[in-house]
């Protein structure tokens, strides 16, 4: 595993921890952080968020990561609100996270 990959993993884990905390504290998900698996559906089944939580989540993404729904294609926002991992992709692609690793590594084919 090269350093770029290690950096990417560290960045992802940091965002993941913040998102998990927000789910528990702001969206009142009654689960321990490590029970919130990263590829599980956020809405409907899975983590079980609903429309009110979606609003909280959008607010959190803006306040924590500077992600503005209006800045990006709303379809991208919607398409990224699937799982913790897709949210992390979104944050790393558009958010003001201060990470220095090469953006886009997550999507290099």
């Amino acid at each position: 595993m090269d350093n770029a990959t290690r950096g990417l993993i560290a960045a992802r884990e940091e965002v993941l921890a913040k998102l998990r905390l927000a789910l528990i504290e702001k969206m009142h998900v009654r689960r321990a952080a490590d029970e919130l698996d990263p590829d599980v559906a956020l809405f409907g089944s899975g983590i079980g968020l609903d429309s009110l939580d979606a609003v909280e989540l959008v607010v959190f993404l803006e306040s924590e990561f500077g992600l503005k729904a209006t800045d990006n294609d709303p379809m991208i926002m919607r398409g990224s609100m699937r799982t913790l991992n897709t949210l992390i992709d979104l944050v790393l692609a558009f958010g003001k996270t201060g990470f220095t690793y090469a953006k886009g590594a997550a999507h290099d084919a």
Partner: peptide
């Protein structure tokens, strides 16, 4: 708390409801 932290436009929708 949500208004103090994030400003009025980003208030907590759950708390508002």
């Amino acid at each position: 708390a949500s208004i103090s932290a994030n400003g009025l436009p980003l208030l907590s929708a759950t708390a508002f409801s």
